[in-house]
């Protein structure tokens, strides 16, 4: 009986102590998480990736040859990549086709980045891709070319009074 009472008091005491401890709540639209690097990248010469967030893709038009390897890699995963005609001409891209990515289907595994042998497809830190329509989720090669601006201001800070997003 006494053991039960002290046990409950200890549990309550532990809860009360935590009133003063900082919490993990991230006030999301105002605060945004900080990431490592500029997104997931892949170096085909060594065959090893570079750590980073797997977010929206970044396409380099001057590197892309229209070889469709990214599309083939995606075939078994999500079928999110379609090769579409682009108006401008590049001398390395005779067929003038480039990937168009449907973010309604993409699972952000990054296997398309691993498949690209020409340093043309990387991923960025951009994760805010929501749209009011399904068509708005389809990113054309011209949209994928734009490097996004991503606000990053919060990371985990551990103090004696608990851990928090700073």
């Amino acid at each position: 009986m006494i053991g039960t009472a002290t046990g409950i008091i200890r549990a309550l005491n532990s809860g009360i102590k935590h009133l003063a401890i900082k919490r993990f709540t991230l006030r999301y639209p105002e605060e945004k998480l900080k990431f490592v690097g500029d997104g997931y990248q892949f170096d085909p010469s060594t065959g090893v990736g570079i750590a980073g967030l797997k977010g929206r893709h970044l396409l380099f038009h001057d590197h892309c040859t229209g070889c469709q390897l990214c599309s083939i890699a995606c075939e078994g995963v999500a079928e999110a990549i379609a090769m579409v005609k682009v108006p401008e001409e590049h001398k390395q891209n005779k067929k003038a086709i480039m990937p168009q990515i449907d973010y309604g289907k993409c699972v952000f595994c990054g296997l398309c980045v691993d498949a690209c042998p020409f340093y043309a497809l990387y991923m960025t830190n951009d994760y805010e891709l929501s749209s009011f329509s399904k068509e708005g989720l389809i990113y054309t090669p011209a949209q994928l070319q734009v490097k996004p601006y991503v606000a990053q201001d919060s990371e985990i800070i551990i103090t004696s009074r608990g851990a928090t997003h700073g």
Binding site: F35, V36, G37, G39, Y40, F42, V48, G49, I50, A51, G52, L53, K54, V107, F108, C109, G110, L111, D114, M123, I156
Partner: peptide
């Protein structure tokens, strides 16, 4: 947060591949 730094994804990491892991640890 550690897994996100390491693999680039918070939940489904797709990090292990035959022959090792997808990317090295971040600095």
């Amino acid at each position: 947060d550690l897994m996100e730094k390491m693999t680039g994804a918070r939940v489904t990491h797709a990090h292990f591949v035959p022959g090792g892991v997808r990317n090295d640890l971040p600095p």
